[in-house]
């Protein structure tokens, strides 16, 4: 199925930051929304930096707001042990942040018990694949949904055009895409926590790679998601600031293309060209790392 963007919509970019340096860089580059985590609160991030205390996070939020941007707090991987601590941190942040990114149903319930209200973004990790699930989370205060990465646009149409007034966001396609279902994958092993989803697997006769849609398909999907009404492109946090910057540049370029209202095929063609340029940037970074 193909969807036309129809109108020239303003598309927001939301980007994860690990410190003030990144925050200032992305604000200067035109990011609309930023989000960050705290070292004491798990937030499903591998190797990237976090803010060290709630006070520091609030300072970052104040700086983003002073520049006319929004700032969210990511608290989307809470186990039982840290639930109460996380709920208290969120209660303490109050209106100092613009919203909270949450996965766990238990945390939503606890915040409701504490009568803490806020703008909640339902994490992709919550695996909200249907309207009925969204309705359940809406009742718990969710105002925006980060769409699961493994949902195709025609499957997400109902979620995007939901009648609850819940907005939707999509992770930047082709660049930040998990081969397996995000939040349901435990395929990382070894001292460096290596992810095996893109590894060559061998079945005794031939090699096998876990399948994923091509970059071309994913850019087509991004076009369709925006055409359906998703208005925010999300860029995840990265352990390497240079890498995060490159991904942001790609997101920014894609936004430019989407806002031009190009036909789908033309958008995909140009997006692939941009993707190749950013790939070269990553190649350069790898080479630089190797030499150092």
């Amino acid at each position: 199925m193909s969807y036309c963007t129809m109108a020239l919509h303003r598309i927001k970019i939301q980007v994860g930051v690990g410190g003030f340096g990144e925050l200032r860089r992305f604000v200067a580059a035109g990011a609309d929304e930023l989000y960050g985590g705290l070292s004491s609160v798990p937030s499903h991030v591998y190797g990237a930096d976090n803010f060290s205390s709630p006070a520091e996070l609030l300072r970052a939020a104040a700086e983003a707001r002073a520049a006319g941007r929004k700032f969210f707090f990511a608290a989307n991987e809470i186990g039982g042990r840290l639930l109460e601590h996380t709920a208290q941190v969120i209660a303490g942040l109050g209106s100092g942040v613009d919203g909270i990114i949450i996965r766990d149903l238990a945390l939503f319930r606890r915040l409701a018990e504490l009568k803490v209200k806020g703008f909640y973004i339902l994490s992709t990790l919550s695996c909200c694949y249907n309207l009925r699930t969204l309705a359940l989370y809406r009742r718990l205060g969710v105002r925006r949904l980060a769409l699961p990465e493994h949902l195709a646009p025609d499957e997400a149409a109902g979620l995007i055009s939901n009648r609850f007034g819940v907005g939707t966001e999509v992770f930047i396609k082709a660049r930040e895409y998990c081969v397996n279902a995000n939040g349901l994958c435990f395929l990382q092993f070894g001292p460096h926590n290596r992810c095996y989803c893109r590894a060559d697997l061998y079945d005794g006769r031939r090699t096998f790679r876990m399948p994923a849609p091509s970059a071309q398909e994913q850019f087509g999907q991004l076009y369709d998601f925006v055409g359906l009404g998703a208005r925010t492109i999300k860029v995840g946090r990265s352990p390497k600031p240079e890498g995060a910057w490159l991904v942001y540049r790609e997101a920014s370029g894609l936004r430019g293309l989407l806002e031009r209202g190009l036909p789908r095929a033309s958008f995909v063609r140009k997006a692939l060209r941009l993707h190749a340029v950013i790939d070269k940037g990553f190649g350069f970074l790898r080479e630089k790392e190797r030499l150092s």
Binding site: A181, L184, C185, F186, C197, P211, P213, E217
Partner: peptide, 16 residues
Amino acid sequence: RYVTMTRCCPWTGRMG
């Protein structure tokens, strides 16, 4: 023991 899953079918390569 479950390790991971995908909605891109490993047998056909098709999504959904």
